[in-house]
Each structure stands twice: as structure tokens, then as C-alpha cells.
Design a protein around this nucleic acid. Sequence first.
DNA 1: TTTATTCTCGTACGTCGTACGAGAATAAAG
DNA 2: CTTTATTCTCGTACGACGTACGAGAATAAA
Lengths: 238, 238
Amino acid sequence: MPGNGKPGAESIDPERLWLRPTEPRRGRRPSFSREAITAAAVTLADAEGLDAVTMRRVAAEVGAGVMSLYSYAPDKETLLELMVDHVSGELTVTGPPSGDWRADLKTVARLQRANMLRHPWLPVALSTRRVPGPNTLAFLEHVLAVLRPTGLDGAAKLEVFAQITAFVAGHVAHEIAQAAVSRSPDRAAAEGRYLAAVAADGRHPELAEALSAPGRPLAPDATFSRFLNRLIDGLDTD
Amino acid sequence: MPGNGKPGAESIDPERLWLRPTEPRRGRRPSFSREAITAAAVTLADAEGLDAVTMRRVAAEVGAGVMSLYSYAPDKETLLELMVDHVSGELTVTGPPSGDWRADLKTVARLQRANMLRHPWLPVALSTRRVPGPNTLAFLEHVLAVLRPTGLDGAAKLEVFAQITAFVAGHVAHEIAQAAVSRSPDRAAAEGRYLAAVAADGRHPELAEALSAPGRPLAPDATFSRFLNRLIDGLDTD
DNA sequence: TTTATTCTCGTACGTCGTACGAGAATAAAG
DNA sequence: CTTTATTCTCGTACGACGTACGAGAATAAA
């Protein structure tokens, strides 16, 4: 059950999922691989959105029967977990921390943003997933190293990582929605007319003024940088 | 299609949805109301999560036939939009801006967080919705008034509002996930064992240290305040 | 060769969103 | 009071979804 906020949602067992060496040396040999299936699902999501990722579509893409997928992931929810960790593998760290942890942290956030822009479904998928897979853990390991000079305790470092990820996800989700509207002139026009009508009703003077004095259009990259700087420069070591 | 990041997802027409007075004075009188249907859907989502909100469940809750709902909302996506604006009505502003716009902005963010904690599905639902309904617009109007002393131009003010909303949504989504894990001792234990196993593999020294020196447990409210202060105190008027 | 094990996948079930259209209720027109 | 137009109600039906089940195929050990 992806994409909800259910209080008692049941979840993945991380031990069964990630801590399994390849034991079985008997029985029929697998025709596919978890890797290939995950990659196909990611490609599908990139091209057609998360809703296009159905077990049937993924199976067809891999050339497998639908039910064969269940030999590699116990359910669809787990497949999504695999997808998230798969693309986390693209968060390639260039080298060891420079020592300037604020600069390093900004680089980290920029890497995450780039990855989310490459995989627009990622912010949504991330918002309900919790157990980090190996690729996510490798990235986390780097972030913890970056944070070493801060002297923060363990829990605080983990919190900073989660917070930055949440911040970037939220920002990019909004960025993507904006871009989608801009890409469709009809939709942008409809939205503009709607807001103009609201502004004209007299009960929204502030909105009316904001729309009439828009200022220069904002570049997404610059906006991201500005908010990122505010957040990270504000971080303190106490 | 909720909860995805599809590039060309089709969307709501805000003019048809929000700018409709009650015109029709002929034909059969409606047996239900958009308001009642939306409220039922919200109650359902609060109690059982977003996935429990199906057209059949909502109809049953209201006492209507399933297809009758489609007289009040053209599709489920629109119903979600109605739900989001419905709970935005709970963002009750206490009074006019105090003049200390940073303090006011923090109050705004706290209101939003409280609302999202009351409706845990809200962060997820928000991440794909874009057109503000009347309740959202009323709240936005207040935020714009709060931002007046900053002298920012219209686009920048709107950007700040979107950014704060995204920040709070991201934070609360993570907060909710954390709380869900903590509420289940089994899950928390499984996750702990998993992370301990990873930390013990020797390739994650930073993680090992972070877990061994956790520091005092973090209070969610305090953590939120800390990050909120960083973000808002860092806002500047240039 | 037999047996145990592991994977493959066709079939089937229950649930979902919603298209369709027949019927019920209501207001205006005759 | 009819008639007609309009608006809403909702039973039925369709295609797509996730996945339980189990029969058959492939492989390794006995």
C-alpha cells in the first residue's frame, strides 16, 4: 500500500530483504534477476510515471510471466523499496569529505536534487519508505563522514540527514509540479485565469497585489540554492 | 492517478471546480452535498489511511450509491483535491499579523504541522496537488499579509509559502514514519537488528559509531522547532 | 534413476475506478 | 393538469489491478 499515511501500515522486513546471501544451490536456476526486474521498473517509472509500474507491465518488460516476479520480491511494495535503493546507487560521491562540512552538505543536497529530477517519482516514493537499502546506506555513510567535524552526536547526525532529504524531496516535488504546469500552456492559462478571478473578488487583496507585482521570474536552480543555503548555513554544532 | 510523478499527468480544471455558484434551479434536488461527501472521505482517511478512501467506502459512509458521488466530483482525483482544501479550513488564523514576520511565519508553520499530524495522509496528498482551493487561498492570503514587511516581490512571497509548506510536509512525513515504527516494538526491533548487522560488517564505520553514540533521544517538537528556526531566521529580505 | 528443491507462470478471485443508461424527481412550459 | 426538459440516483458492467494457488519444468543431491 504505497502512497498513504495509514497509522498501522505493515511494512517490509529489512533483514529478510537486504541481508540474504545467495544460498540456494539446488533446484531450477533463476531465469531473471532482482537487479534486472528493478531496473526495468525504474525505467518504466521514469518514462511513464509511478502509476505505470504495475506487476504486469514490469513482467512484460522483462519478458517474464507476471507471477514470476514474486520469486524476486514478495510484493509490489517491496519492489518499490528496491527501486528507491536502486536509484540511490546513482548518488555517486566524488571523494572524501573536504573538511568544509557545510559545502560538502550542499553538494550532497545537490546530488539528491539532481537524482530526484532524473527520477521524478522519487520524492513521492521516498515519502513513505523508511528502511535504507545498501546503496542508501553507502550514501548515508558518506554524509555521516561529512558531518564528523560538527561533533554532533549520532542521533543528531541521522536527524540532519533525514531532514535534508525531506527538505530536498519536498522542494523537488513542488518544483516538478510547477514544471508540469508550465509545460502545458492550456493548464498554465487555466490556472492563471482562476487565480486572476480569485484576486478580482475583492476578498484577496494581498494575492491581487502579489499577482500584479510578480517581479522577475524565478529560476528553479537559484531558488533551490537560496533555500539550501539558508537551511545549511543555519545549521549549528551545538 | 494520485501519488505519482508522471511527467504529463492530466489535472483538475480549477475554474470548473472552484468557481461554480449553485446555478441549477431545475431537475431533481440533490440528496447529498459535496461538503458531506468530502467530510466523510476525510474522516475515513484519518481513521484508516488514504488507501481506505475508495469511492465504494465513501459512498457507503454517506449512504449513497457509488455512482452518485460522481455528481459531486468528476473523479477520485478531484475528491482528493476537495479533501485537501477541506482540512485547510482548519488552519484557523488567530488574528492579523503582529508585525514580527519571522515569528508570524513560525506560527504559520506550526499550524501547518499540527494540521498534518491531525491528518497524517496530508503530506502525501499535498505532494501531488497544485491548485489551491478557497480555504487554502484564505490561508495564503494571511501568509502574504505576514510577508508584507519583508518587501519581497509577489513571486518571491509565493515561493516562500510553497517552500515552507514543502518543508513542513517533508518533515512531518518523516516524523509520521518514525512514529509508526516506534509504535510497533517488533518493527523497531527488526530495524534495529538490521542496522546493527550493517554496522557490524566493517564497511560502515561512521554508521557504527553513530549508532553506538546515539546521544539523548530527540523530541519531535524540539527537532521541528530547531529546523524551523534555522530556515526562517535565515530568510532575508533582499 | 529417484527424490527434493527451486523457479515459472496460467488461471482465478476479489477490489478498484468509472462508463453507460434506465428510471426517479423536480421545475418550467403548454 | 399535463407535457417536456432538466437534474440527480444508482444498478450493472468492463477492464485493470495485486496476488493466492498449484501444476509443471528444471536442476542438484542421493
